[in-house]
């Protein structure tokens, strides 16, 4: 029987793997977003706030969160794509988005609890281990099953995008938007489509995170730190292969847990600092990430023979 802690780690790896997979749909096609912390935060907070303040079930809160995420994604992404804000400039715009989201959550402290975070009102009273309406389960195995299903769904979406002509179109767009338009590709629409899919996946990730942890905090579901963690995780794992983001999730989680065990909470922001430094190293020395580099190693001898 697996203990609670390894089970918890497995759940988190799959959950972050799902979110990273969503991020890499954009990242691998030339849209490096530092704004996914915003989508995760909107997902987590919308559902918890609607539940706590209006008693609205997460089953209804989730569609609301998805709608809000879609609206925010469109409002930010449409002007970016329409006016050809790409590369570093796109990264900067999205960076602002995740930080603004964190600040808004923090500032609305009467509603959100500010930087102290918030806990969804408990529905698991007196020995109940399952509250389907409130989307609360005390049994980690239930969560493992739910999140495993979402992780599989994420991989399926990844594969769908990977095999479609849309992926080639977005690759063409990432190289030369004007030439792509000249052969009939609606550049803005193609980018918006994949952005929406990516943002909505991240939003559901945020919802699941909040319901699983039963705690939300602006710093752990939104802001620059969490966005950087996503970028780092995906690049470390490898964003060009299907399981790369999941490997990245395992890597970042083990790194974070290792640091926590070694240093406790002595050095706040130590993990973020290390992510930043390692990100640079990965981009220079292992641009295909851990899984990408491993696959290259495995394939190379075969090709030579």
């Amino acid at each position: 029987m697996i203990g609670n802690y390894p089970l918890h780690l497995m759940i988190l790896v799959l959950l972050w793997g799902y979110i990273y997979t969503g991020w890499s749909l954009m990242g691998r096609l030339g849209m490096v977003s530092f704004g996914h912390g915003a989508f995760m935060g909107i997902g987590a907070y919308t559902v918890v706030m609607l539940w706590n303040h209006f008693g609205l079930s997460p089953w209804l809160g989730a569609p609301a969160a998805l709608a809000l995420t879609a609206a925010v994604a469109l409002v930010i992404a449409y002007p970016c794509f329409r006016f050809k804000i790409v590369g570093h400039y796109f990264a900067l715009v999205t960076l602002a988005l995740s930080e603004v989201t964190r600040l808004v959550i923090t500032a609305m402290r009467d509603v959100t609890g500010g930087s102290l975070g918030a806990t969804p009102n408990g529905a698991l009273t007196e020995g109940r281990s399952v509250a389907i309406g409130a989307l609360q389960f005390s049994d980690k195995w239930v969560w493992l099953a739910i999140i495993f299903a979402f992780w599989l769904l994420g991989l399926w979406v990844w594969r769908l995008v990977d095999r479609g002509m849309g992926r080639l179109a977005l690759q063409a767009i990432s190289e030369d938007e004007e030439a792509a338009a000249s052969i009939g590709i609606h550049v803005t629409r193609a980018k918006l489509q994949v952005t929406l899919v990516s943002a909505l996946m991240t939003c559901t990730g945020g919802i699941l995170y909040a319901q699983y942890q039963l705690y939300v905090n602006p710093d752990t579901v939104s802001g620059i730190a969490i966005s950087l963690q996503m970028v780092f995780g995906v690049i470390a794992g490898g964003m060009f292969v299907m399981l790369g983001p999941t490997v990245g999730a395992a890597f970042t989680l083990l790194l974070a847990e290792g640091l926590r065990l070694a240093f406790g909470n002595k050095y706040p922001a130590l993990d973020t600092t290390i992510y930043g430094a390692m990100l640079v190293l990965f981009i220079i020395f292992m641009p295909k990430g851990i899984l990408g580099a491993l696959l290259d190693l495995v394939r190379r001898p075969r090709r030579a023979s």
Partner: peptide, 15 residues
């Protein structure tokens, strides 16, 4: 202005 990350055939098939 070819799309260099795509194969020749993919360049043309996309069009």
């Amino acid at each position: 202005r070819p799309f260099k990350k795509l194969s020749l055939l993919e360049n043309v098939a996309l069009a």
